[in-house]
Design a protein around this nucleic acid. Structure first.
Length: 432
RNA sequence: UCCGCGAUAGCUCAAUGGUAGAGCAUGCGGCUGUUAACCGCAGGGUUGUAGGUUCGAGCCCUACUCGCGGAGCCA
């Protein structure tokens, strides 16, 4: 058997014979000339079958082909601007591998429920290919960014004994004789242990939130990357976040331009993602809301609509820092200049895509942290190991978490995160 | 959990309270450069479920189920 040729490499085969294996994406016929669109996962290729150039058997085989049937076509490769994909094959032979029967996703519009029920098939469409390739590029550039800066990848456990943050609801499961275990909602606390051990680490993995959120920004299972750096203060944390965003957006613009074009993404705002990003305080953000006439009350956290209103003031992501401590997590350090404020930062993506990064400088004083645990009614015993990090050589340290799906949604310009992960898990969807 | 909107052919949608239609998909036929091809013909329905109002309900009313959007919460 000759070496396998993929559609993405067809430029090397112009004027030569090749065999491509794949699935039928679509077909058209016009009398004694027939066209088929083959996809092989790397691209699409238009095959042309002219009756007088092929055997009757091959010509008739075309007529039995149905959408998503698997087949191999052989013939001469030719560049042709008329063809979807840019290349054409003058087909000499068609080998049918398996005929598909009544493939449900036709080349016409479908509803969300219908497509979500068939997500395993929907993944075959060009739009989903583009989104998931951008997702891959984002994940690759995330790892590249941290690996290139000497961060250690530190995997945090999925099963945890207690909440990392008191506020969210946790998925609960039985754990042998040890009682209840919970699916992690953040690897951060373990990341802090890693930072004390290795200086700078990043945790990258799935996280779970049993919130009954039903919005375009929420999944119950989502991926998060969480860097944690010893001796970094809040400003260092923001410096890291903006360099990080510049890196991943830059990589997608450079390496996935074709996919962004498929998605009809206007890249104007993406090209603005260069450091420095605007930094405003919580109070300045509240002032923006006031000026725009919203009924926001100072002291609350921002809702989805508030975030959109704030981000509309900027043509790139904006960092909002120093939130009221009472709306933030127990582990965040207070601002020494104002004990009511937490040294926290949220990065809001433009165009209403909401919070993509949440971070903070962590409380590094043993007594203060213990007090915060009690204030939040968290079981001290479950956090004993975490308190150890303050008993033995505590240092200032900071980190943040970036939600991968929201980032994909923003960069692709989607209106819902459900298409940013192969098999989304949402409050009312567990299948396929 | 709460608020709003929706459910009609395989899919996407029409249909003044009065005979349920179209496009796509499917099947058959036509066309030598098609681009979600096009043209002709055909098959395809207990209008989400259960009640109610009415001479008559896809349409009006009630409840339920499912879905979508949003709120709260959050990345």
């Amino acid at each position: 058997m000759s070496s396998r040729v993929y559609i993405e490499n067809l430029a090397d085969y112009v004027g030569r014979e090749a065999t491509i294996s794949g699935w039928l994406y679509n077909k058209r016929s016009s009398g004694k000339i027939r066209f088929l669109i083959l996809r092989d996962g790397t691209g699409v290729l238009q095959g042309v079958i002219v009756k007088q150039n092929v055997s009757e058997k091959v010509f008739n085989a075309f007529d039995t082909l149905t959408q998503e049937s698997s087949l191999r076509i052989s013939g001469t490769v030719r560049k042709d601007d008329r063809a979807p994909g840019g290349y054409e094959m003058d087909v000499k032979d068609v080998e049918i591998i398996a005929l598909a029967n009544d493939y449900p996703i036709t080349p016409k519009e479908h509803g969300v429920e219908f497509l979500m029920d068939r997500r395993h098939l929907w993944l075959r469409s060009q739009r989903q290919h583009a989104i998931l390739r951008v997702r891959h590029e984002i994940i690759r550039s995330i790892r590249e960014f941290f690996d290139g800066r000497g961060f250690l990848l530190m995997d945090a456990p999925i099963f945890t004994p207690a909440a990392c943050e008191g506020t969210s609801t946790l998925f609960e499961t039985e754990y042998f004789d040890l009682g209840k275990a919970y699916l992690t909602q953040s690897g951060q606390l373990y990341g802090e242990a890693g930072a004390m051990a290795f200086g700078k680490v990043y945790v990258f993995g799935p996280t779970f939130r049993a919130e009954k959120s039903k919005t375009r920004r929420h999944l119950t299972e989502f991926w998060m990357v969480e860097p944690e750096v010893a001796f970094n203060d809040l400003n260092d944390d923001m410096d890291l976040a903006e360099e990080f965003l510049e890196h991943i957006v830059g990589k997608v613009l450079k390496n996935r331009a074709a996919e962004l074009k498929t998605l009809e993404r206007n890249t104007k705002f993406l090209e603005n993602v260069k450091k420095p990003l605007p930094r405003i305080t919580y109070d300045e953000a509240v002032e923006i809301l006031r000026k725009k006439g919203t009924s926001f009350e100072r002291g609350n956290d921002f809702g989805g609509t508030d975030e959109t209103v704030i981000s509309e003031e900027f043509d790139r992501p904006v960092m909002v820092h120093r939130y009221p401590a009472k709306v933030k997590a127990f582990y965040m350090k207070r601002d020494p200049k104002n004990e009511d404020l937490a040294l926290a930062v949220d990065v809001l993506a433009p165009e209403g895509h909401g919070e993509i990064i949440g971070g903070s400088q962590r409380e590094d004083d043993y007594d203060v942290l213990l007090k915060r645990l009690h204030e939040h009614n968290l079981p001290e015993s479950a956090f004993d190991w975490y308190l150890d990090l303050r008993r033995f050589g505590s240092v200032p340290h900071s980190g943040f978490g970036l939600g991968v799906e929201r980032t994909v949604s923003w960069i692709c310009g989607l209106d819902h995160v459900r298409e940013t992960i192969p098999f989304p898990r949402m409050i009312y969807r567990l299948t396929p």
